[in-house]
């Protein structure tokens, strides 16, 4: 039994999810007496492939081509399906990242398999994999099974922990794939990076601000705290719709889904659509002057008080702690 783990890289560096996926695949493989084969796609990436051994990959297939430097839904799906077929993998795991969510449905059709998307838990029962995934904005969870012989799962980033790398190594093989122009009928030509700022979807700590901050200038104190913690800045939809922050920072139903280890919600009421995007965070801190704000119902720690006084005080305490 073989599990194929898709290890996402950008600019020659693995995303954190790559390690999470390999490790989650290894945990499942161990219970099925199987092994993990990872696939990495790009240009000049064979040199980083070996890192995946430390998270449980027995073998890594590196598929290199100059045209694979940037993402292409058509070409990447072909590569993943071809590798899965060549390796006789019956389970595939990919991250529920923007790349993984985009490529997985195509791979599913090519391999004639079912796809369980955005899973937050995988268990093995009687020799088969069961996945749990949130539905209805996190108000429900479903336990699902995939009935086809090839089973595909995308895993929500930051939920499965990769742990530390061990000194196990993986066999790295390169695989040559012939492409035609049609394989690149949709291809990324350019990536516009959002000026080096941390993205909420990938951050381990997020400090988010809402309408209670009254204006864009008051996000300076959010940025200050975030900067001190090495965190990303997030925002509620009210703050985005008011034009105070850009949409890429919006957390929630119509923004991003995040699962950091720490989420600090400042002057955010905690509407269901906001909770939908962040309720799977490991620890939630709420600062709100209204003790009845719904955000407190899911917060692990709360301060019922004025953000304008509390946030600078927290920043000062964190600086003290970190010796900054």
């Amino acid at each position: 039994m073989k599990i194929l783990a898709f290890a996402e890289q950008r600019n020659g560096q693995f995303k954190k999810t790559a390690f999470e996926i390999v490790k989650a695949a290894k945990t499942v493989a161990d219970q099925l007496n199987g092994e993990v084969i990872a696939v990495v796609i790009g240009k000049d990436i064979a040199s980083i492939a070996g890192q995946l051994g430390g998270f449980g990959a027995a073998k890594v297939i590196a598929v290199e081509d100059a045209r694979l430097e940037l993402y292409s839904t058509t070409a990447y799906s072909k590569v993943i399906a071809d590798v899965a077929t060549a390796q006789s993998a019956s389970i595939l795991m990919l991250p529920a990242s923007e790349m993984g969510k985009d490529v997985a449905p195509r791979v599913a059709v090519k391999l004639n398999g079912g796809l369980a998307a955005g899973c937050t838990m995988l268990t093995v029962e009687n020799g088969s994999v069961k996945a749990a995934r949130p539905v209805y904005a996190g108000k429900g969870l479903v336990d699902v099974v995939v009935t086809t012989s090839t089973k595909i799962f995308t895993l929500r980033p930051n939920v499965f922990t990769a742990g530390n790398s061990t000194d196990s190594s993986a066999v790295v093989e390169t695989m040559k794939i012939e492409f035609s122009d049609a394989d690149f009928s949709a291809a990324v030509k350019e990536v516009k990076a959002a000026s080096g700022k941390k993205d909420v979807a990938e951050a381990d700590i997020i400090v988010s601000g809402g309408r209670g901050l009254k204006g864009p200038e008051n996000f300076a104190m959010i940025e200050d705290l975030a900067g001190t913690l090495g965190a990303a800045v997030g925002a509620s939809r009210a703050a985005v719709d008011a034009g105070w922050r850009t949409h890429d920072e919006q957390v929630g139903q119509t923004g991003k889904t995040v699962s950091p280890s720490l989420y600090v919600a400042v002057a955010i009421s905690g509407a269901v659509q906001h909770l939908a995007g962040m309720s799977s965070s490991k620890y939630i801190v709420a600062v709100n002057k209204d003790k009845d704000a719904p955000i407190f119902s899911i917060a692990d720690y709360g301060i019922v008080g004025d953000a304008f006084e509390v946030i600078p005080a927290i920043t000062a305490e964190v600086k003290k702690l970190l010796g900054k």
Binding site: G114, D143, V145, T147
Partner: peptide, 11 residues
Amino acid sequence: SRVVTEVMRKP
């Protein structure tokens, strides 16, 4: 369907 729900539960 290829993905079948066994149970829906509250988180």
